[in-house]
């Protein structure tokens, strides 16, 4: 299955988040995570690609992208964690949940998943201080309700 996967991160994220996928493409998701570790610029490129897909108006595309993000956070190491833990990426998640930006046209399903992921990272990656800072800000602004 690994040999059938496209090469580039761009091609892999397109496959793993294709709105026409009937179910989650776990081979594709794992292939993206593997590839981002192999490339020098893999982590910053991966977070840019993920941010764009997570901001998709197509719910299924966004949900798949959040699943890729979740899976990569579990499977990848410090280089990827550090990129996700920058405001450069976190701001893109904040835009999706904030009514001042994309929040009013985003489904509750997508917004909830983003907040759940961020909360889980505040517990699992307490040294990633910017994640905790961003999450506390969302709580203060009333975006996190429970």
């Amino acid at each position: 299955a690994a040999d059938m996967e496209p090469e580039t991160l761009e091609a892999r994220i397109n496959k793993a988040t294709n709105p026409l996928n009937k179910d989650l493409d776990w081979d594709g998701i794992n292939a993206f995570c593997e590839q981002l570790n192999k490339e020098l610029e893999g982590p910053p490129l991966a977070t840019r690609l993920l941010a764009h897909k997570i901001q998709s108006p197509q719910e299924w595309e966004a949900i798949q992208a959040l699943t890729v993000l979740e899976s990569c956070m579990k499977g990848c190491g410090k280089r990827f964690h550090d990129e996700v833990g920058k405001f450069r990426f976190l701001n893109e998640l904040i835009k999706v949940v904030s009514p001042k930006y994309l929040g009013s046209r985003t489904s509750e399903k997508v917004k909830s998943k983003i907040l759940e992921l961020m909360y889980s990272w505040t517990l699992g990656l307490p040294h990633e201080l910017k994640i905790s800072e961003a999450y506390q800000m969302l709580k203060k602004q009333g975006i996190v309700k429970c």
Partner: peptide, 15 residues
């Protein structure tokens, strides 16, 4: 484009 040891970042978005 980011260099290999790029530690630069933006500010937290103010919502």
């Amino acid at each position: 484009t980011a260099s290999f040891h790029d530690d630069s970042d933006e500010d937290l978005l103010n919502i």
